[in-house]
Amino acid sequence: MSNNGAPKQSFSFADPDKVQNILSQYPDKQSALLPLLHLAQSEEGYISSAVIDTISEIVDCHQALVMDCVSFYTMLYTKPHGRHIIQVCQTLSCSLNGADGLVDHVTAKCGIKPGETTDDNRFTLMKVECLGSCGTAPVVQVNNDYHESLTLEEFEKLLESLK
């Protein structure tokens, strides 16, 4: 999940077989849009305009329709982020169990507010809405992984471990 320097002018998927496999699962091409966007983001770190061009060609629909979709979903990023995206759930059960403290901790320790990325590109901090893990609040998602029932000490250790 890294992106250094200027955005690439063109994008192609690393493994065309994966793309074909995704397409083959659906009765129509456009249904493959979200899976292809996920795949592209896992390779590029975000949805660049080059990604949009490539995918719009694959699923055979206008780039604007792809962007319409991308802009709707919070997990799809149109800008590059840090290596570790710290997503702190802020909805009620997590909030009642100290989520705000976790956000403040990152801000104090790394000097970034929600929505910001550290200068060394290590962390991006985000406040997100309910992650569906209220029984193990507070919960923080870092990239793909959930970290549940976090105490401040555990969270501190977690941040340390993310290089």
Partner: peptide
């Protein structure tokens, strides 16, 4: 633009209160 001109340039960007009619710069 989707149904009559078939050109599809316009789209709704973002969602909820932040929604707005938009167009890609290059299209």
């Amino acid at each position: 633009t989707r149904e009559i001109s078939g050109s599809s340039e316009l789209f709704v960007e973002a969602r909820g209160y932040n929604s707005k009619i938009s167009v890609l710069e290059e299209k």
